Amino acid sequence: MLIDPPAWPAHGTLWSHLVSDTSLHELRTFARAAGLPDRGLDLDHYDVPAGRHEDLVAAGATPVDGGTLARRLASSGLRVPGRERRGATRAALTARWATLRAPADAAWGHIGAELVERWSEPHRVYHGRLHLAASLDALDALLAERTDAPSSARVARLALWFHDAVHDGEAGRDEERSAALARELLTPLTAPGATASGTTAARLTCDDVAEVERLVLLTATHDPAPGDVLGALVSDADLAVLGDSPARYARYVHQVRAEYGHVPDDAFRTGRGAVLEALLALPTLFRTPTARARWAAPAAANLASELSRLTR
């Protein structure tokens, strides 16, 4: 555990950074034991007010200068680079949401604001804004390779916005609640309406809403039927992290463990091992040709390597 001097001014005080160069799970466990709120976690570090600096040093954090802390975090593989960080800000995601409908539509803006808040909940470590931005990027990459990009691509994007909008760590139930939320928030927008600028907002149909629900539920199994184009796109985009570089996959593994930090080690290994075995047992992990070509081989290697570590 490392902490730098209070040097960053905000909210009437100076702030330090608290990091682990070993484990996000260790970082969250240490922070909670010290009474730091979960909302203080900013992807790869905790922001700590100056008044807590000495307490955390006394609790076991090693004081270092800012440069040393930055280098140790970067070499750990846990650091979130600036490009990813910028794409996952509230402002960036709010702007991205606005592109799916007429920006002047106030109701649409309210829904987007609620979703961004949900994805920003402090108990999330992996299933947060960073995952949302990455899955939307993956979907864009898949669509860019298609010459027959479906006209309903907006529905696929909406499904990704909603697919973990409710996340309490209950497999299956989270997807059901997220699908119900999509129905609740989007159904009122299926009637035509005028925007503040006087133009007609791009309509959603009842069929669109039903398809968003279906796609959200599909992310519980990641097993779309043959010929389910939108299902394949949404499932592949959600799983894209599995086929990332070994370093980024390792960061994802740390994020998942920290998010389920309340689960004892033995129980986590058992549950995580079951998830990995289920993914490896799928006939094919990715369903679109582009995703298979890009991510299937590295995903298989990443999953098998993690499962081997767990069983050891």
Rank of each mutant, 00 (worst) to 15 (best):
R28C: 03
R28I: 10
R28Q: 02
L27N: 08
W15Y: 12
V19M: 00
A31Q: 08
S23Y: 12
T29F: 02
E26R: 09
V19Y: 05
D21T: 01
E26W: 09
L27C: 00
T22I: 12
L43F: 14
L36M: 07
W15Q: 06
D21L: 08
T29K: 07
A31N: 11
G35H: 08
A34N: 10
S23C: 13
L36R: 05
S16I: 12
E26A: 14
S20G: 07
A31S: 07
L43D: 15
P37M: 02
P37L: 06
H25T: 11
L41S: 00
E26H: 05
R28Y: 01
A31R: 01
A33R: 15
D21G: 03
R32C: 08
T22F: 12
E26Y: 01
D21C: 02
D42P: 09
D21F: 05
P37W: 08
F30G: 05
F30L: 01
A31W: 07
H17R: 15
R39K: 13
W15F: 10
D42Q: 14
S16L: 11
L41E: 04
S20E: 04
R39Q: 12
L27K: 05
S23A: 13
L24A: 05
L18G: 08
L36E: 03
G35N: 02
H25M: 04
S16C: 15
A34W: 13
L14A: 04
S23Q: 12
L41N: 09
A31E: 03
L43M: 15
L41H: 05
D21R: 07
S16Y: 09
H25Y: 11
L27F: 10
S23G: 10
R32I: 07
G35F: 01
S20I: 05
W15V: 04
A34D: 07
T29Q: 10
L27G: 01
L18M: 01
S20V: 01
D38G: 11
E26T: 09
H17D: 13
D38N: 11
R28W: 09
T29L: 11
R39L: 10
V19W: 02
G40W: 03
D38A: 15
L43G: 02
L43K: 15
A33V: 06
R28S: 08
H17Q: 13
S16Q: 10
A34G: 11
A33L: 13
L43A: 15
P37T: 00
